[in-house]
C-alpha cells in the first residue's frame, strides 16, 4: 500500500513538474492540477496510512488506535476546495491571455 501510494504521488508530481515547465498555458494548468493532486495525496499520507478505520470517533470505543487521523482528511478537503477554485480562476486568465495575445504561449508571444 505504501509503495503504491508513494509511486502514485511521485508519478503525479513528476508529470506535474514536467508540464509546469512547458511553454503552453494549457500544459501549465494541467501540470498545476496534477501537482495539486499529488499534494493532496501527500497530505493524506501524512496522517499515516491506515486501512478500514473510520476518522469519526465513536463514544462507545474510546481507544484512539482504532481510528485513522481525521485532521489530514479535513486539511485535504480544504486544500481540494481552494485548489479547485484557483484552477478555475487560472483558467479564466488563460483564456483572457489567449484572447489578448492570440497565442497560447505563456509569455504571450512565440519565440
Amino acid at each position: 500500500m505504501e509503495l503504491i501510494l508513494a509511486i502514485g504521488i511521485g508519478v503525479l508530481a513528476g508529470s506535474g513538474v514536467f508540464l509546469l515547465l512547458r511553454p503552453r498555458t494549457f500544459q501549465v494548468i494541467v501540470g498545476l492540477s496534477l501537482i495539486s493532486y499529488a499534494v493532496n495525496l501527500f497530505i493524506f499520507s501524512m496522517g499515516r496510512i491506515r486501512l478500514n478505520a473510520a476518522p469519526v470517533l465513536n463514544p462507545a470505543a474510546n481507544d484512539p488506535a482504532l481510528y485513522t487521523d481525521p485532521v489530514p482528511q479535513a486539511l485535504v478537503l480544504t486544500a481540494i476546495v481552494i485548489g479547485f477554485a484557483m484552477t478555475a480562476l487560472f483558467l479564466v486568465v488563460l483564456l483572457a491571455s489567449r484572447g489578448f495575445t492570440g497565442t497560447d504561449h505563456v509569455d504571450g508571444r512565440e519565440r
Binding site: 509546469l20 498555458t25 501549465v28 498545476l32 501537482i35 495539486s36 499534494v39 501527500f42 497530505i43 486539511l75 486544500a79 481552494i82 485548489g83 484557483m86 484552477t87 480562476l89 487560472f90 486568465v93 488563460l94 483572457a96 491571455s97 489578448f100 495575445t101 505563456v106 509569455d107 504571450g108
Partner: peptide, 20 residues
Amino acid sequence: VRAGLHYIAINLAASSLFLI
C-alpha cells in the same frame, strides 16, 4: 494579463509547496 498569468502560476506552485 501577461504579468498576471506568471504571477498566478508562480503563486499556485508556491501554495503547493506551502501545503507539502
